[in-house]
Structure formats: structure tokens, C-alpha cells
Simulated scan of single mutants.
Amino acid sequence: METEHPIRLTSAELSSLWSNYMFDSMSICVFTYFLEKVKDEDIQPIIQQAMNISIEHIDTIEQIFADEGIAIPIGFTEEDVNTEAPQLFLDTLFLHYIKHMAKGGMAMYGIILPNIIREDIREFFSNCLASTTELYNESTSLLLSKGIDIRPPYIPYQKDVSFVEKQNFLAGWFGEQRPYTGQEVMHLYANVQTNKLGEALSLGFAQVAKLKKVRSFMQRGKEIANKHTDIFANYLRDYDLPVPMTWDHEVLESTESPFSDKLMMYHISLLNGSGIGNYGSAISMSQRRDLITSYTRLTAEVGLYAEDGMNLMIDNGWLERPPHASDRGELIKHKR
């Protein structure tokens, strides 16, 4: 039970609310464009559901910040979306996008929620997790009903219990190699899917970005995503496991941007962070040394790409400063 006197937001609560505001303000711009362009009557309600969730999040966070006397971020506004631009992605990519963004949201809220203490903020993020889970389920069901979602690979049921007896269970570079565990298959397959989505978005953004440096950055991102997809796909093919389809064909030929370069750069930065998190999860659930080594190496590559993206955003004045700890040394220095 909360005490009656005001309880300040902790660093976890403040930073999570701030980050959520930035993400949802971006999402509103994206969904506004999607709603303007979508033609499939089955997909339109899912986009509207996603939009309503983001609007509700923004309204709640703005009220919390106002009550606490916290500056509301600029985030992204109607200036960052151009609904008059031609359709850049097919309707089916809209649906894949919502499913995978909801998937990332569930993972994010699962990390945030255990670090939240204040009751009203716990309730907010609990509701975020519930509504995002519902959105994921709705979008997945629609994808399956349309026959355009592919289930992860099947592996045999175990008929009896056994124990690992050989050290080569951990091997992967030389000598006898075991097939992948179900967890390893799950992460390989999921990372193929997320990289394919990143590749499609980067391709579309590269076509429409205004600044040459942004176009080059997006093209580089497409190449990295394609490379990582091939690596994970080859691991799956080694044991005759299916590889998810590509979504490049769902990117249309428009060169007029529906989004600001600032929004697209921020979006790719989110995907980079999510990708690094996905690889970290995969490392924690993999035992084969070759998989761990690949994930570690590819994480470093994404990290360098993400750093270059942040520098590009800083150079253009697009990166809002997030909540941060006080620099006590600097405060003391100015006092003299």
C-alpha cells in the first residue's frame, strides 16, 4: 500500500516512462500513415487497435509527468509523418510489422515491470503488457488465418528422459556436432525473422530518406540484416530446418518519404537495440560454442552500426537527451 505523502519516481520508473513516450509517439506517426494507406479491411482494425494503445500510453504518461512537474519530451509529432506520400509497404507488411513490434514490446515490458516499485506505475506497465500481449495475439491469429505466417520449425517429441553424457554437447567448431536444442532452434528462427523485417524496413527507408548520409546508413543496415539472415538461415539449413520467407517483395517502389529522416533514424536505433537484446537472449539459451561465438561477433557488428547511427542523429540535432543521473563533480565545479 502506498503511503499518503508523494513518492518520487525512481530512475527505473522515470527512464521507462520517458522511453515509452518516445516509442509511442513514433508509433502514432507510423500507424497514422498505415491507417491512411491500408486497403485490407481485415488488417485495418488491427492497426487501429495498435494506434489506440499508443494514444492511451501517451495520455497516461503526459498526465504522470504533468503531476510530477517533469518536462514532456518532444518525441515525434505530425511534422514527422506525411500521409500524402504514396504507399511504401504492402498491407501484409503492416501486419507483420505490428506483430513483431508487439513481440518486442512484450519483451521490453517484461524487463521493465520487475524493476517498478510505485503502485500506479506498476499498474500502468502491467496494463501495457496486457494490451500489447492482446495485440500480439490478434495480429498472429490474423496472419495465420490469411496463411502468411509461418510456424517455427517442428522437432521430434521426446519419448523418454535422458541425460547428456558427452562433452561434445558443448562443441560446435570441430569434430562430432550434435543437432540444435529446441531453444537454439527457436532463437535462430526468431532472429532470421527479425532481421528480415529490419532488412525490409531499411530498404524502404533507404529509398525515401532525404539526406544522403541517412540513405547510406539505411543501405548499410539492409546489408547487415541480409548478412545476419544468411548466417542464421545456414545454421537452420544444416539440419534441414525451414527458413522463414523474405519480405523484400512487400516494399514498393515509392521514393517519396512518409516519415522524417529523424523518425526513420530513431526507428532503426530501436531495432538495433532490440536486435542486440535478442542476440543476448540467444547467447544465454545456447550451449553450442559456434552459436555463442557467432552471436557475440554479430552483436559487436550491430553495436558499431548503432553507434554510427547515434552519432548521425547527434550531428543533426535529432537525439533528445534521456533522463540521466546528476553530475555531482560538475555541480561542485560550477559552485566555485
Rank of each mutant, 00 (worst) to 15 (best):
Asn278Pro: 00
Gln177Lys: 15
Tyr266Asn: 10
Asp80Arg: 10
Glu56Ser: 07
Gln207Ala: 14
Ile7His: 10
Thr132Gly: 06
Phe174Trp: 07
Thr10Pro: 08
Leu88Ala: 08
Tyr279Pro: 04
Gln158Lys: 10
Glu2Val: 05
Phe34Glu: 02
Ile70Phe: 12
Val243Ala: 01
Ala225Gly: 04
Glu223Val: 04
Met108Thr: 01
Lys210Thr: 15
Glu223Trp: 03
Thr133Arg: 12
Ala85Phe: 04
Lys210Val: 15
Leu263Ile: 05
Ala209Thr: 00
Glu165Phe: 02
Asn115Glu: 14
Pro45Trp: 04
Glu184Ser: 05
Tyr239Phe: 15
Gly280Glu: 11
Trp18Cys: 08
Val185Trp: 13
Leu144Arg: 02
Pro179Asp: 07
Phe89Cys: 01
Met245Tyr: 08
Ala50Glu: 00
Leu241Asp: 10
Met310Glu: 08
Leu211Arg: 13
Leu197Asn: 06
Gln49Ala: 03
Gly275Tyr: 01
Tyr180Gly: 06
Glu4Ser: 13
Arg289Cys: 04
Ile117Ala: 12
Ile47Val: 04
Asp67Leu: 14
Ser145Met: 03
Ile7Glu: 07
Glu13Val: 14
Glu78Ser: 14
Tyr33Ser: 02
Glu62Ala: 09
Leu304Met: 10
Pro45Asn: 01
Asn191Gly: 09
Glu119Pro: 01
Thr10Tyr: 13
Phe124Trp: 07
Ile7Phe: 06
Met106Val: 11
Arg328Pro: 03
Ser131Arg: 11
Leu170Thr: 09
Ile58Lys: 12
Gly172Asn: 14
Asp42Tyr: 04
Asp59Tyr: 00
Asp59Gly: 00
Thr181Pro: 04
Ile46Gly: 01
Arg220Asp: 15
Ile74Val: 13
Ile7Leu: 07
His96Leu: 01
Glu119Arg: 15
Met22Cys: 11
Gly105Tyr: 04
Leu298Thr: 04
Glu13Pro: 12
Asn226Arg: 07
Val192Arg: 07
Trp318Ile: 13
Ile111Phe: 12
Cys29Trp: 03
Ile112Ser: 03
Gly221Lys: 05
Phe94Trp: 01
Asn82Glu: 09
Glu56Gly: 06
Pro242Met: 02
Pro244Trp: 06
Arg321Met: 12
Gln167Ala: 11
Asn311Ile: 00
Lys227Tyr: 13
Asp230Glu: 14
Met313Asn: 03
Lys159Val: 03
Asn52Trp: 00
Trp318Lys: 07
Glu301Phe: 00
Ile148His: 08
Phe94Lys: 02
Ile268Gln: 08
Leu170Phe: 13
Ile74Arg: 11
Asp120Val: 04
Thr3Lys: 00
Asp261Leu: 15
Ile332Val: 07
Gln63Glu: 14
Asp42Gln: 11
Asn115Ser: 12
His228Glu: 08
Ser15Val: 14
Ser126Ile: 03
Phe31His: 09
Leu252Pro: 01
Pro73Met: 09
Asn316Asp: 13
Ser284Tyr: 02
Thr296Lys: 02
Ile314Thr: 11
Lys166Cys: 08
Asp248Arg: 01
Thr299Asn: 06
Leu270His: 08
Ser25Asp: 09
Ile231Leu: 12
Ser274Met: 06
Gly172Ser: 13
Leu142Arg: 09
Asp149Gln: 12
Asp59Met: 00
Leu291Ser: 02
